[in-house]
Design a protein around this nucleic acid. Structure first.
Lengths: 254, 254
DNA sequence: ACCTGAACACCGTTCAAGT
DNA sequence: ACCTGAACACCGTTCAAGT
């Protein structure tokens, strides 16, 4: 028997659609719209995503769509928020795996890599959502949502570094903060994924095996930080494979 | 006395505009159009760049503009080609400076950083020019131009690595190729510049001093490779400052 | 051979009219 | 209070007519 949620009574009105239910319905429809938008993105790429097509794919009118997203840019930011939520989910999954601190850092890199390859269009969305032109035309509440999620993702990273310091696997040199380490790793991961990734950017690197390269880059960086166990003393290739196998493969399609 | 290039005679025609002259004029006008496009970009950002506005800013008609650029995307790729040319110029300037191999690698990083901050809109152009949507709609000859320039930029990087190997400042481990090293450094540089750079992407890293961070990241990576002299044995901060001072500051405006 | 600009198709956004 | 879709403004692209 499906759980039918009854409206609260404190707001007197006739039977049928109550305010609580209504807000929930609106949110539900927004998620449906976002799903439709992602389908369009996957089928026809970024240029294929127009408000007209989204309207046609949905069961509501253009005006109603603008009731949810104040502009096309707002829609894109909404998609990026959705992406960050999935990314955060991946981060949590991957942090639940067993292993020492450096393996957990590696796991975060893997999760980021996995997302960028499994959802190339969404990765592009994330990128363009940070563009000034898009930011300027998105609602304040949506921007706040994104910022909150970004903060949560960062917390995951910092948590791992803090653990490493507590375990004495890593010592911070003078003048080097946790935010700096996070930034550097994020930059390497972002660059590697963007260069190889969604849009085949920079065609000249296509011959290389990306996963091996990413792992090599991460090892160089973390060895440079003296984050033990160093790559000479531990088989991180096996860690990478183990993490990859542990993550559910049902990420690509839906 | 200005050098007036005379047309060849093998193509009989009346006096005045000869084929050679004509081709040169066309190229000249194309460069003027690109300059106008960049002015618009700098003033009103990416969204402000429309074919209408470019037409209005120029002294030719819309049809003529489409004679130069087969689509708006072709124009964007043309701008990216222009950017790569400037970048290559910077690379050459910076490689002419004195110093050992690791300092030269650092100099390339500096040139890349300098370009991304001095010309944020062009850096964005470079990024979006790699997008599938843009690539699909640009002419084959323009794409070939870009690829050739990318190859030249890569050559600069590989040249430095080769020099380092010849100088015994760097030894390649088994299974590690020059292209891998180039890729990793490029990824870190690209990520760091994109994350901090043109569009203030990822607001959460804004508090950090980017130049210090980049230098730290490069040092970690190159120390990890055992590229001597290591950062503990050499003052790369000073190198960075020296390189910065040596490069002409007249890069931003025009 | 090259240039022109009116004309067309498409897309983001709005808003008066409906329920 | 919310939905609708016609209407508007804008922009990329084309092409018949001009020189």
């Amino acid at each position: 028997m499906p759980a039918k949620i009854q409206p609260e009574h404190h707001n007197a009105s006739s039977a049928g659609t109550m305010p609580g239910n209504r807000a929930r319905n609106k949110l539900l429809r927004e998620q449906q719209l976002l799903q439709l938008a992602q389908n369009i993105l996957q089928q026809d790429g970024f240029a294929g995503l127009t408000m007209d097509r989204l309207t046609a794919a949905s069961e509501v009118s253009k005006g109603t769509i603008y009731n949810h997203f104040c502009s096309k840019e707002d829609l894109i930011t909404a998609l990026s928020v959705d992406s960050l939520q999935r990314q955060l989910l991946l981060f949590h999954q991957v942090l639940a795996l067993p292993g020492h601190s450096r393996e957990r850092a590696l796991a975060l890199h893997y999760a980021y890599y996995r997302f960028s390859t499994a959802e190339p269009t969404l990765f592009l969305c994330l990128l363009s959502a940070t563009t000034a032109a898009v930011v300027e035309k998105t609602s304040a509440t949506r921007l706040a949502q994104r910022q909150a999620l970004e903060q949560q993702l960062l917390s995951c990273c910092e948590q791992v570094i803090n653990q490493a310091i507590a375990d004495k696997a890593l010592q911070l040199q003078a003048g080097r903060g946790i935010d700096q380490l996070t930034y550097l790793q994020w930059a390497l991961a972002f660059g590697a994924n963007a260069l190889y990734g969604p849009s085949q950017q920079m065609g000249f690197f296509q011959g290389l095996e990306q996963q091996q390269l990413m792992l090599a880059g991460i090892n160089l960086l973390l060895d440079g930080l003296d984050w033990t166990p160093l790559s000479g003393q531990f088989d991180y290739q096996q860690s990478w494979r183990r993490i990859a196998a542990a993550l559910p493969q049902t990420q690509a399609a839906q």
